[in-house]
Structure formats: structure tokens, C-alpha cells
Amino acid sequence: MTWESDVVDALVANDVTTVAYLPDSAVSSLVDRIEGEDRLDTVRLSREEEGVGVLAGAWLGHGRGALVCQSSGLATTINALASLSVPARIPLLALVTRRGDLDEFNAAQVPFGYGLADVLDTIGVRNTSLEDPADAGRRVGMATRTAFSTREPYAVLLESTLTGAKDEF
């Protein structure tokens, strides 16, 4: 079993119905696994911010949504998280490939990627880092349960130590 299949199993086991995503090389294996899972509907986005709306709509229709994107994409969602998900108490799970820290080669990924957890903390979105593949399914399942029980967005940051950083060195 790979960490990707453990994560998909955790989503399905916790009644996630819909995954909205923007493709990214660091999560391509996860997205492929999600696309191949009949029990998950997928919505391909043009911009990650849309995903917060799409998954709010899914929840309002009694579904459960997860957003899969890279940290630079999550940067586009901050207004939607802070002015829809958080104040309206509309939950979602975010699985975010975190750029900007260990092994990062691109300075443009650093300010938001490195500061991601602080930004989320500041707007009231709880989050946790995921580094150990052996722990991935369990922690994503726990994140999903707490998001939908407390009716809040929750973000799981997929660190480069888990996903493997882009090798540009």
C-alpha cells in the first residue's frame, strides 16, 4: 500500500463525496488514485479559490468535500476561506502540497509556502503537517472527522519529506 492509497481509503471511509483539485506534479499520484476511485466525484478547477465555493456547495447539498492543491494555489483561496468557510461554518478538508521549505529551489514558492501554517492559524483554519507515509491515512482520516464534526475547514500540509520535492538541483 502507498500513502496515496491510504489517503484515498481514509477519504472514502469518512464519507467524503467530492474532491476538487488543480493538477500538480507533487500530488499527481494522489490525484490519479482519486480519479480512479468510483466512490469519489471529482471537480477539476480553473483556480483553487473556486474549490472553496464548489465544496461549500457540495456540503450544502449534504456532501463532504476535499480540496487538493499546492500551497501557491491555497494562497488564492484565503479570501474564500476567511469570508465563507470560517464565518459561515462550512467545513472542508484541504490536502495541500507544501512548497517553500525543505529542498525548495524556487524563491517564488517561499514566502507563502513557508508561511502557510501561520496564515491559516491567523484566519482560524486549523492545520497539521504530514511527513510520515506510514501515518498518512490515519491522520487524514482524523483531520476529515474533526473538520466535519466541528463544521470548520481543516488543512493537512503534505510536506516535501512526504511527497518528494522537485529535483532541480
Binding site: 467530492t18 473556486e50 464548489v54 461549500a56 456547495g57 450544502l60 447539498g61
Partner: peptide, 8 residues
């Protein structure tokens, strides 16, 4: 987008 997610 909220309407899209709901409609789906």
C-alpha cells in the same frame, strides 16, 4: 462556484 458544487 458555490452553485456549481451544489448542482453537482
Amino acid at each position: 462556484p458555490v452553485g456549481l458544487g451544489l448542482a453537482l
